[in-house]
């Protein structure tokens, strides 16, 4: 049985400005702006989706720029991101941690496991979705969702926080489509995406990425370390490697096996 969203008391003073429920004053706006842009995340990272959650916090995607910081304790956090499978043994602990989070609090179900249990749904030890235990605000499908999708989910949650605090959160049936709801995931460029020449990327990265330790890269400046290696090994007994790697190969098997 899923926990209905109506269980949650949005009338509670904590969800709006205490004592200022009449109109949105500029103070309220300021506080809403602050609350929206500093969603601190409690990472309930149990399994594989947790790795993507880490990747979202890490350098390429950088969720920090949205004010989203992962904290280690539930008592400092606004959002619980449930990333991964929740088992029968783990579920009471998740509930306990959820109860330790101060109001107002939100929950994101990240990945199929947290939404419905994924293909483990029918297994004796897995609970079929975290919404059997705690109310969920945003569902992010995927196995695992890409970091982009998690970012999109966080943006959606910001939209919801803004609406709830501003008193604009309509009942479920009358909720209008907002702009953010139509947004797709933000585009985060890949290192090797087709538009970028690999040489340009390499040059950029070389300029920007070193730790500045004067490591092997800098020391070997006179012998360009990044030239394509020409060494071949005797251990490899095949020939004609370059044609293969440059992709002149037709792959008849590709389509045949893809439908398996």
């Amino acid at each position: 049985m899923a926990v209905d969203e109506s269980d949650r008391n949005y009338e509670h003073p904590l969800y709006s400005m205490p004592g200022l429920s009449v109109a949105a004053t500029s103070v309220d706006k300021l506080l809403t702006w602050g609350a929206t842009n500093s969603l601190w995340v409690f990472a309930m990272a149990t399994s594989c989706c947790g790795i993507e959650l880490m990747a979202t916090a890490a350098s390429r995607v950088d969720a920090d720029r949205m004010g989203t910081i992962i904290r280690g304790t539930p008592r400092q956090c606004d959002v619980m991101v449930v990333a991964g499978t929740i088992t029968v043994k783990m579920a009471p602990r998740v509930l306990k941690l959820w109860e330790q989070m101060p109001e107002p609090k939100w929950c994101i179900a990240m990945g199929s496991c947290a939404i419905s249990g994924d293909f483990y749904r029918d297994i004796y030890s897995v609970i079929p979705g975290i919404d059997t235990a705690i109310p969920v605000d945003v569902y992010i499908p995927g196995c695992p969702p890409n970091p982009e999708q998690l970012m999109a989910g966080l943006i959606r949650l910001q939209e919801k926080v803004r609406a709830v605090r501003g008193g604009e959160w309509a009942p479920k049936d009358e909720r209008p489509e907002t702009e953010a709801m139509q947004k797709t995931a933000p585009s985060i460029p890949r290192l090797l995406s087709a538009e970028r020449s690999p040489d340009v990327t390499l040059a950029q990265l070389l300029g920007a990425g070193n730790l500045g330790l004067g490591g092997a890269l800098n020391r070997a400046a006179d012998a360009p370390p990044l030239a394509a290696p020409q060494e071949t090994s005797d251990a490899i007994t095949t020939q004609a490697p370059t044609e293969t790697s440059e992709g002149a190969v037709e792959s008849p098997s590709e389509d045949e096996h893809a439908d398996a």
């Binding site: 290192l191 090797l192 690999p198 390499l202 990265l205 070389l206 990425g209 070193n210 730790l211 330790l213 490591g215 092997a216 890269l217 370390p225 990044l226 394509a228 290696p229 490697p241 293969t244 790697s245 440059e246 992709g247």
Partner: peptide, 19 residues
Amino acid sequence: GWAKQVHTTLDLIASRIDE
């Protein structure tokens, strides 16, 4: 063209790992 990208990437990573 994948093999070339592998070489580029691994060269880059190799230098970082030294650091």
